[in-house]
Amino acid sequence: MNNFKAFLLLSIGITITLFSGCDTNNVIDNNISMPSRNWSYANKVKAVVDITDAGKTYNVYFKLRHTADYGYSNIFVLFHLRESGQKKQSRRYEYRLAQPDGQWNGSGSSNLYTYTLPLLTNYKFPKAGKYELEIEQNMRDNPLKEISDAGIKVSALSK
């Protein structure tokens, strides 16, 4: 009986630690599927985030899924950030999706590879308010073939 009580207490303690030990909480986590696995210039990934505490720090991620038939080892994207009523700020990112030997960097199961790639880390929004986030593919191919879906994730870091 004592072993059972010790096991039960240990199990409860591990469960509490797992749920309370998380250092982030997702403010936004969205994905959009690409029609016929083709990401066109016009098909931008958009999200609006409402920042209530400008003192907090956030991580902003680009989420991507592609098939094994994706034709490149990298991807270029444009990331746009706009505070309500303000001018849009844009930045171009390049992400390496594969090793020189062709091995995909993403986590995969069968024919689909998944990435969560950093856009902004430990970022403080200038002030409280609504911000529009937008990602567009910036490769030469339009549409960019074999992209299953793309998304934006914003996580608030604990203080």
Results as ranks from 00 to 15, higher is better:
residue 141 D to T: 10
residue 33 S to N: 08
residue 108 G to R: 07
residue 89 Q to T: 14
residue 58 Y to N: 05
residue 117 L to Q: 02
residue 3 N to H: 13
residue 28 I to P: 00
residue 6 A to T: 14
residue 110 S to T: 11
residue 8 L to R: 01
residue 159 K to L: 15
residue 45 V to C: 08
residue 26 N to F: 02
residue 74 N to K: 02
residue 136 E to N: 07
residue 113 Y to I: 02
residue 55 G to N: 13
residue 34 M to R: 03
residue 95 Y to S: 01
residue 60 V to T: 08
residue 138 N to K: 06
residue 65 R to C: 01
residue 93 Y to S: 03
residue 120 L to P: 02
residue 45 V to E: 03
residue 62 F to Y: 15
residue 113 Y to G: 00
residue 85 G to F: 03
residue 152 I to Y: 02
residue 82 R to Q: 11
residue 107 S to G: 12
residue 142 N to P: 08
residue 120 L to V: 03
residue 91 R to H: 09
residue 114 T to V: 08
residue 57 T to M: 01
residue 24 T to C: 06
residue 51 I to D: 07
residue 109 S to A: 13
residue 143 P to T: 11
residue 70 Y to S: 00
residue 156 A to W: 01
residue 158 S to D: 14
residue 92 R to G: 08
residue 100 P to D: 09
residue 82 R to E: 11
residue 147 I to C: 00
residue 74 N to F: 06
residue 80 H to I: 05
residue 147 I to R: 00
residue 28 I to N: 10
residue 4 F to E: 15
residue 44 K to M: 09
residue 22 C to L: 15
residue 97 L to K: 01
residue 69 D to I: 04
residue 22 C to G: 13
residue 8 L to A: 10
residue 113 Y to H: 11
residue 94 E to C: 09
residue 121 T to A: 05
residue 7 F to I: 12
residue 146 E to N: 15
residue 29 D to C: 01
residue 22 C to D: 10
residue 119 L to K: 03
residue 11 S to D: 10
residue 71 G to N: 15
residue 6 A to Q: 15
residue 109 S to E: 08
residue 21 G to V: 05
residue 56 K to E: 09
residue 55 G to D: 10
residue 52 T to F: 01
residue 89 Q to Y: 08
residue 57 T to N: 04
residue 147 I to M: 00
residue 94 E to H: 03
residue 112 L to G: 00
residue 145 K to E: 14
residue 2 N to P: 03
residue 120 L to T: 03
residue 116 T to V: 12
residue 2 N to C: 07
residue 63 K to R: 12
residue 141 D to Q: 14
residue 124 K to A: 14
residue 87 K to H: 10
residue 136 E to Y: 01
residue 119 L to H: 02
residue 151 G to F: 05
residue 83 E to S: 09
residue 129 G to Q: 03
residue 88 K to F: 00
residue 79 F to H: 10
residue 40 S to L: 09
residue 9 L to T: 02
residue 128 A to K: 14
residue 141 D to A: 15
residue 28 I to K: 05
residue 142 N to S: 12
residue 89 Q to L: 13
residue 94 E to K: 11
residue 125 F to I: 11
